[in-house]
Simulated assay, not measured.
Amino acid sequence: MSTQGLLYGKRVVITGASSGIGAAAAELFVREGARVVLTARRKDRLLEVVDTIGAADRRAIAIVADVTRAEEMRKVVRTAVETFGGVDAAFNNAGWTSTGTPMHLMNDEEYDRIMDVNARGVWNAMRAEIAVMLEDGGSIVNTSSVAGVRATGSSAPYIAAKHAVIGLSRAAADEYAAQGIRVNAIAVGSTRTELMDQVLSDTPSLLKPFTERSIQQRLADPVEIAQTAAWLCSDRSSFTTGAVIPADGGWTAR
C-alpha cells in the first residue's frame, strides 16, 4: 500500500495562513505531502506556523502579504514558482468580518474593509494563480460561507462578499476549464477560529445562534474545513468544478 499523502508532490499557496482554518490547512497539507507557500499579514504568527510544520526541510515557507493588494499576491505566486517550480493548487482562505452593524449605521470604511478582504482578496489571488496555471492546469479553492448562500444574520457586506466569492469561483471555473483549471468554493459554517473565540469571549450568548441552525449543533474544528479544502485541491476531486461544497454541519440542509 502506498504511503503517499493525498497532496503528494503538490505545490500549494494558502492565504490567511497565520491562524484558524488557514493554519490548520497548512499543517494538514504538509502532512498530506504538499509543499506550501503560506501568506498572511501577521509576520510573527505566520513564522510560528512555518516553524511548526515545515521549516526544517523547507516544505513550508512564509511570505507576508495583504490579499487586498494585487502586486503583493503576484509576489506570493512568484515566490512559489521560484521556490518550488510552480503552483498546482491554491486555497484562498483569507477573510474578515465585523460584528453585524446594521446597514444604516455602518460606515464606508467598514464596508470597504469587508468587501476588500473577502471579495477583492479572492479576485487578486485567483488572477495571480491562474496566470501560472494556464499551461499545466491546477485546482483553486476559495473560502466562502453559509453566508454566501443564505442571509445568516451576519453583516450585509459580509453576506454580499461571500456571495461574490461563489460568483467569482463559478465564473473562473467556466472561463478556464479548457486550460485544466478547476475552481470551487467551500460554504463554511461556524468554525472555532481565533476571531470566533474573541467574539464568544465577549458575548458567550452568541454560541447558541451560531450553532442551533446546523444539524450537528456545534462549531467546526478548523481542521474539518481544511480536510474539505485538501480533497478539492487533490486529484481525487478531478470531476468537481464550479461547485459550492458545504462544510457546515448540515446548516444549509435545513
Rank of each mutant, 00 (worst) to 15 (best):
I130Q: 02
E48V: 09
T211E: 03
G121C: 02
G9V: 00
G242A: 03
A230T: 03
V132P: 08
D235H: 12
A178G: 12
G86F: 00
G85D: 08
A161L: 08
Y8M: 12
A185P: 06
A70V: 04
L47A: 14
I181M: 04
W231M: 14
A230K: 05
A161F: 08
T191P: 06
P222L: 07
G100F: 12
T79A: 11
A94M: 05
A156C: 14
R35E: 01
G20K: 10
Q217D: 02
R182Y: 01
T83M: 09
D44N: 15
M73C: 04
L206E: 11
R35S: 12
S98E: 15
G100C: 12
E71D: 15
V36I: 12
R11E: 01
M1A: 09
V141E: 04
R182S: 03
D108M: 13
G95V: 07
R254I: 10
I181T: 03
K10S: 08
A128R: 01
P209N: 13
S139L: 11
A185T: 09
G9F: 03
E135Q: 11
S18I: 10
D51A: 15
V87I: 08
A56T: 01
A55H: 09
S169F: 11
G242S: 07
A160F: 05
A119V: 05
R236Q: 15
N142P: 04
A161N: 07
L46G: 01
K10N: 00
A253T: 06
R45M: 15
R42E: 13
L168C: 11
K10Y: 10
L105G: 14
H163M: 02
T240P: 10
A55N: 01
V165T: 10
M106T: 09
R41I: 14
E109Q: 15
I166Y: 08
E194Y: 07
R182M: 02
E129H: 08
F29Q: 10
N124D: 09
S2N: 12
Y111L: 15
L207Y: 09
A94I: 09
T143S: 14
T143A: 14
P209V: 13
A220G: 03
A177K: 08
I166Q: 05
T143W: 05
Q179F: 11
G33H: 10
V49E: 07
F239Q: 07
V146Y: 10
D197S: 15
G249R: 03
D202F: 04
V12E: 04
P102M: 13
A94P: 05
V12G: 01
M133I: 02
